[in-house]
Design a protein around this nucleic acid. Sequence first.
RNA 1: UGCGCCGUGGAGCAGCGGCUAGCUCGCCAGGCUCAUAACCUGGAGGUCGUAGGUUCGAUUCCUACCGGCGCAACCA
Length: 525
Amino acid sequence: MSDPTRFYITTAIDYPNSRPHIGTAFEKIGADVQARFQRMEGRAVHFLMGNDENTIKVSQAAARLGLEPRPYVNDMARQFQEVWKALGVSNDDFIQTSEERHHVGCRKFIQAVFDAGDIYKKGYKGRYCDGCEAFKTDKEVEEAGGRCPDHPNLTLRWVEEENYFFAQSKYAERLLAHYEANPDFIQPESRRNEIVNYVKGGLHDVSISRKGFTWGIKVPFDEEQTIYVWFDALLNYITAIGYGTDDERFAQLWPADVHVIGKDITRFHCALWPAMLMSAGVALPRRVFGHGFVYRKNEESGVLEKMSKTIGNIVEPMEIIQKFSAEAFRYYFMSQCPFGGDGEFSFERFAEVYNAAFADNLGNLYSRVLTMCAKYFEGRLEGADAIDPTAWRAGLDWPALVAELRAQVGAFQYNLALQRIWQDVLGSVNGYITSMAPFKLIKTDPDATRTVLINLAEALRVVAILIKPFLPTTAETFYRSFSYEKAWEGVCYEDTLSPARTSTLILTAELVGGKPVPLFPKIGA
RNA sequence: UGCGCCGUGGAGCAGCGGCUAGCUCGCCAGGCUCAUAACCUGGAGGUCGUAGGUUCGAUUCCUACCGGCGCAACCA
């Protein structure tokens, strides 16, 4: 049993045959918010990401560039990580499935399943598509006019070979029992129903090896075969943390608290993966969260489209980061797309959201508070510990609100949490400024004005903490603008329940001409 | 075909048995001037896809239908 204060979170590993797009990034950011939040809640988080490299497509992509697979995948891994870093993703590890630790763990695992009697050899013949890396049924081929429906430009090969199969079918009953006993295993709820029905319909055994490939992991009990994609890919979650190479570390971190994955691959994670683990006698992950997809809104027709190379509507994260900012990218997707459901993207909508929530609201609030502190009190708020700076949130049931936010963030309901922070918290602060009118009050009552500004500084501190998992950079900028005593690294949601007590609060932000430089300049005219 | 999801003011979403159906953008009218022409208040705009049913009462539960979408073993 792993330590309850630990939190192990993973994302799907990506095929490095093309660069990541905003949909891939959506998943990583969603996982990152959870990782950051769990760290704030005091857990020792281990956050894993990686690339899925043991596939024929990768060696083909490398060959097109005249490269050997190894330098190709290493370069792609570097590029992927560059993007993740630019987005502020705080993963602790990045596994490439071509790494030694993965190969060793994989071979150990497949051997364990073999020893459990769940792997057998079976002859297979059929038409094989190199694009799909899969056999096609006669029906599929017939309907597509003798070609692969997904790759009509490739010629199907007639393949007759013996492959190894995993006896997934044996585990249907146990899987159903597991879903029953662990209602939270598959999230969100709608995906759960899908999987339960699927497994109830009966499971097939799956082919887990291929003959004649050199790039990939060799089957330990038959060196002529290599392990085939899924059986290999899923194992990254355990090989990365020491399965087969570091038993002590593995025992500490496993089972994973949550696998964050796309809705298209929930089946592999909710049926095949647990069946594999049951066979090998390894504990099951606690939760699988299948997030939705991001669709691209066609700016001319208004129609939502799946992003694809053929349509040519792919948006790369770097494009948005360079044009706007990584923080805006994170905010847009986390606030506009329910993580469990689907979302949409268009540049038009992006600019709209950015201007309203970032420039006009969050950024402007920061500017007006700092400017008044500098202008009226030269950045020194004395006697800050003598008052109770909670007037700014007088209308809110604060403990209840914080409790709700914690629950929402923990449940991946990011859009709801952000909506609430903007509506209730930022709304209250702006309303407080209007009703107290410190810019008028300063003319008659400096002491009362100071109290208002101490309240506002406290409000900014609270906002900084609440947005920390979502907008780490902005949050830190907010927090470091005043001399709050507690170290930024250690702040948590609970710290918003009671005001920070500092005798003299000092404005530490850099000002230009008495004002902060706008954090988020408005987009457009 | 099977399974699943969705259909709420012009756009994007929340609400999921019961106070005058909320929020963001846009629009209109005021207020304010500390602030990134930002902020605050008020207003116009909805038979909550259609037709039945359950109920004292349904946007919220059930059934059918219409429309959109997704998954169905390897497209994040």
